[in-house]
Amino acid sequence: MAEIRVEKLHKAFGEFIAVRESDFTVADGEFFVMLGPSGCGKTTTLRMIAGLELPTSGRILLGGEDVTFNRAAARDIAFVFQLFALYPHMNVRQNIGFPLKCEGMPRAEIRARVEETARFLRIDHLLSQPTSRLAGGDRQRVALGRAIVRRPKAFLMDEPLGTLDTEFRDLMVRELRELHMRIAATTVYVTHDQLEAMSMA
């Protein structure tokens, strides 16, 4: 895992300034929450760290390396979205293993890593299930599994619990906290929910 450093990060869309001279450091292994209302620049900042959006000016350093203009694929960062973005035609095993398959990892290693990740998230009994049949909490675990299985340098989470009902959200807040304590992954978490931010960070 790695430290994330953001220096004077600025993003303008024409006349509109989405992010203004932002400076912060997320220490190696830290869980860092960005809290604010819709439209304040949280997601834009996250997308710039991920490499999905290029800044107008400023720098982004990952583990001391300047990655400001690197493509997303070259940053070794996993992104978990609010909408789970699972592949409906694949089962749980195939969804979790998909990033490793794209990397050309051998089949036996993919199988072992997927099973280890599924056990870790307590969804190993669901590996053969189609994702379309899963409850919201389980679908979110599959989305997390697909991020974790890669063992990236950092995790970026954009309102990952936003679509869940209150009961599931409370459960997933606890589970995400536990998960972070177990893997000590550098994590940047975006939310507009003050209670969620306080619980997580």
Score class of each variant (00 low, 15 high):
residue 103 E to C: 10
residue 99 P to Q: 01
residue 91 N to W: 02
residue 91 N to D: 14
residue 94 Q to F: 00
residue 111 R to F: 06
residue 97 G to M: 12
residue 92 V to S: 11
residue 81 F to T: 06
residue 119 R to C: 13
residue 68 T to E: 01
residue 104 G to E: 07
residue 104 G to T: 09
residue 106 P to N: 12
residue 72 A to H: 00
residue 112 A to T: 03
residue 115 E to F: 00
residue 77 I to W: 06
residue 108 A to C: 01
residue 97 G to W: 09
residue 100 L to I: 08
residue 58 G to C: 08
residue 113 R to S: 10
residue 83 L to G: 10
residue 72 A to E: 01
residue 103 E to F: 08
residue 80 V to W: 08
residue 68 T to Y: 01
residue 65 E to H: 07
residue 117 T to C: 14
residue 78 A to H: 00
residue 54 L to N: 14
residue 114 V to T: 01
residue 106 P to Q: 08
residue 52 L to S: 08
residue 99 P to D: 00
residue 95 N to V: 12
residue 103 E to K: 15
residue 98 F to E: 08
residue 94 Q to L: 03
residue 101 K to H: 10
residue 63 G to M: 08
residue 114 V to K: 01
residue 75 R to K: 05
residue 102 C to D: 09
residue 94 Q to V: 00
residue 110 I to R: 08
residue 61 L to E: 07
residue 78 A to F: 00
residue 77 I to Y: 05
residue 103 E to W: 09
residue 100 L to H: 03
residue 115 E to R: 06
residue 54 L to W: 10
residue 66 D to R: 05
residue 92 V to P: 08
residue 76 D to H: 04
residue 98 F to Q: 06
residue 101 K to E: 15
residue 75 R to H: 03
residue 107 R to I: 05
residue 62 L to G: 05
residue 108 A to W: 01
residue 103 E to G: 06
residue 78 A to Q: 00
residue 88 P to I: 04
residue 87 Y to W: 11
residue 71 R to I: 02
residue 113 R to W: 04
residue 109 E to F: 11
residue 106 P to E: 12
residue 93 R to D: 08
residue 78 A to S: 15
residue 101 K to G: 10
residue 75 R to C: 05
residue 61 L to G: 03
residue 76 D to W: 03
residue 80 V to R: 05
residue 76 D to C: 09
residue 116 E to T: 11
residue 101 K to M: 14
residue 69 F to V: 04
residue 59 R to L: 04
residue 67 V to P: 13
residue 59 R to M: 04
residue 85 A to Y: 05
residue 59 R to N: 09
residue 72 A to P: 08
residue 122 R to G: 14
residue 114 V to S: 01
residue 92 V to N: 09
residue 114 V to I: 02
residue 63 G to F: 05
residue 93 R to Q: 13
residue 52 L to W: 08
residue 68 T to G: 05
residue 99 P to L: 02
residue 105 M to A: 12
residue 89 H to E: 13
residue 64 G to V: 01
residue 96 I to M: 04
residue 80 V to C: 08
residue 84 F to G: 01
residue 107 R to K: 15
residue 112 A to N: 04
residue 104 G to N: 12
residue 114 V to P: 00
residue 98 F to L: 13
residue 92 V to Y: 12
residue 100 L to T: 05
residue 90 M to T: 07
residue 108 A to T: 02
residue 51 G to R: 02
residue 107 R to E: 15
residue 107 R to Q: 14
residue 101 K to I: 15
residue 97 G to T: 11
residue 100 L to E: 03
residue 95 N to D: 11
residue 68 T to S: 06
residue 121 L to V: 09
residue 111 R to P: 01
